[in-house]
Write a protein that binds this DNA or RNA. Structure first.
Lengths: 344, 344
DNA sequence: TTGAAAGCGGTACCAA
DNA sequence: TTGGTACCGCTTTCAA
């Protein structure tokens, strides 16, 4: 047994019951008064509120959850926090959620898949809902959520069954970038993608290819850069090693972190960016804006995505019958110095 | 095999009671069997375990917490996740905690102070303990934890009253760097610190100054870079603007992110690093290792810090009367190319 | 080795 | 407008 949590030795923790006793009313009255039930007289409400403050009363969420079934906890499945994009997401997420009185239980923040045991923790804690950003939720975990009627919202992911989603219009972003490069005179592109498991990367590449390739321009190479710096670096080295006449004149990385790796590798091999080869990324992470990189990229509306995601989730927590919904938000190209620009 | 749809209309959710009924035993027996109480016969234990799996039973942590007083939740107060150092910390933290069946409720992950309402959420959720990394916990919040006997462990912070702490030996790190620079022939140092609120920065600077300054060498300037890239950048510009003869020959930034900003600014003004001025950082974040920076720095033993921190916390959760403890872990210098090295 | 029963701190329905 | 009361799901004596 744990020692009782007391504010002072011998004095019992303030609960609704102690409050009720010292106010000379019933526990139910206190409960109602505290949540502003209009059926309690204003005078009583004020009196109890004052006593609560005075006694340092703190509601026990566990007890509330047990009887009401709502925990105020959201399960958060986050991609690798060391990827600056997820770090941005996390900051915004925590801030927005706090403003809505929601808290996150964070159950994943690294690379790789989520263990089932980790996913089950979500249900143990009776999370009201679950937010998934990019890292893949196993279908078993998703099934568990669906069966237990835990609403699922994915941010920055293509929706799956039993889930709502909000993401940036990735295909449109890819298209915009392709048009920009075409206008800049590029005709031979290499794509640094993030593998078949990344729905975002696939969409971006699809949009890019659609708008870039025709009878005068084409995709000359593709590399799997796994959404990490090292992957981009390896691809950059491979590109630098290509015979000069086969080399692409521009490079589209499906995320900035990949682009950064590629740029460093190209330069280490003596190639100039953008003079010898243009590089474009995606995401608009802060690191990519700094002088050594100054990456031309596509900004995802992170804050809006976070806000909409939380809204979708809140709505579904309140009304589980709501149908799944996906929302697509428009981003914008950010032109810096890593790619040759169109002539004015 | 997936669990049956326990939430199907009309069919009750699997609880200890439903389990007990269908096993023809009492709820207490099920409770004990499930946690491997040796006083339950092995046969019974096995039978109940099998039924639990078959029924897809998930314990309700809220109920368990209510009766046992232990939630398995740790409150996490994290510094700004967009600072790569905290991102590294977060990844390790979540991984280590999951292995110990602990989950984090994340209540802060941005810049700035923690709102009291946010801190109080910790208590509402009856967290077993609280882990604080760098971001300042208001003394009010700390008091609340102390009153409620919620153990507090700080990682990467100087301990405060009512808290244990684990951190890197910052002063020693500062000293090591100073010795390295002195050996490299540097005599005029500038310090880019992170303000009076950062105990780490203060320790690092103290160690550095102790080992650097004497009658042949001195600290020629100090700048408050607020632990952010932009702060380092501003300081770098100020240094570049100094008359040549007043300029420092080396620069100690109390964190890598500051050093990166400074390097970019110095170079933008035409100064070469390390030829015109050496730059050293602290933390060893991945970004600092990349070619444009290749920062000479001091590596904090992050993984060990995380592990020890969780150990300290677990011990105090089990035995709240344990005295506060601070542990200091030794880091190591990482020599790269941003600072002139000693002649062999 | 097992069962009965009393909470843990709230919520919510039914009376008064 | 208030009080009484029956849970929510699990843990933990105390008895049998």
């Amino acid at each position: 047994m744990l020692p009782p949590m007391t504010d002072a030795p011998g004095r019992p923790r303030t609960t609704i019951v102690t409050l009720a006793r010292s106010a000379g009313v019933s526990a139910s009255t206190v409960s109602r008064a505290l949540k502003g039930d209009p059926s309690i007289s204003p005078a009583m409400r004020a009196r109890i509120a004052a006593m609560a403050v005075e006694a340092g009363y703190m509601p026990n969420i566990m007890a509330r959850t047990l009887s009401s079934g709502r925990s105020g906890l959201i399960g958060l499945v986050l991609g690798p926090a060391t990827n600056p994009f997820y770090a941005m997401l996390l900051e915004d997420l925590v801030r927005e959620a706090a403003a809505r009185q929601q808290r996150f239980m964070i159950i994943h923040a690294g690379p790789g898949a989520i263990e089932d045991s980790t996913a089950e923790a979500l249900l143990h804690y009776r999370v009201d809902g679950c937010l998934v950003t990019s890292a893949d939720l196993s279908s078993r975990a998703a099934d568990i959520c669906a069966r237990n009627a835990v609403p699922l919202v994915m941010i920055n992911r293509i929706p799956r069954r039993h889930a709502s989603a909000v993401s940036c219009d990735n295909a449109e972003g890819g298209r915009t970038i392709a048009q920009f490069l075409r206008a800049g005179g590029h005709r031979r592109a290499a794509i640094l993608h993030s593998g078949p498991g990344s729905s975002n990367g696939i969409e971006r590449e699809r949009g890019f290819t659609d708008a870039f390739a025709d009878d005068r321009a084409r995709i000359v190479a593709r590399f799997d850069a796994r959404s990490i710096y090292e992957g981009g670096h390896a691809a950059g080295e491979a590109i630098a090693a290509m015979p000069r006449r086969d080399r692409p004149d521009c490079l589209f990385a499906v995320s900035d972190i990949i682009a950064m790796g590629a740029m460093d590798a190209l330069r280490a091999k003596g190639l100039r960016v953008p003079d010898d080869i243009s590089v474009v990324g995606f995401d608009c992470i802060p690191d990519g804006a700094r002088p050594p990189y100054a990456i031309t990229t596509f900004r995802q509306p992170v804050q809006a995505m976070v806000r909409r995601g939380l809204e979708l989730l809140a709505a579904r927590i309140g009304a589980p019958e709501l149908p799944d919904e996906s929302v697509l938000l428009r981003g914008e190209i950010v032109i810096r110095d890593s790619a040759r620009r169109p002539r004015p």
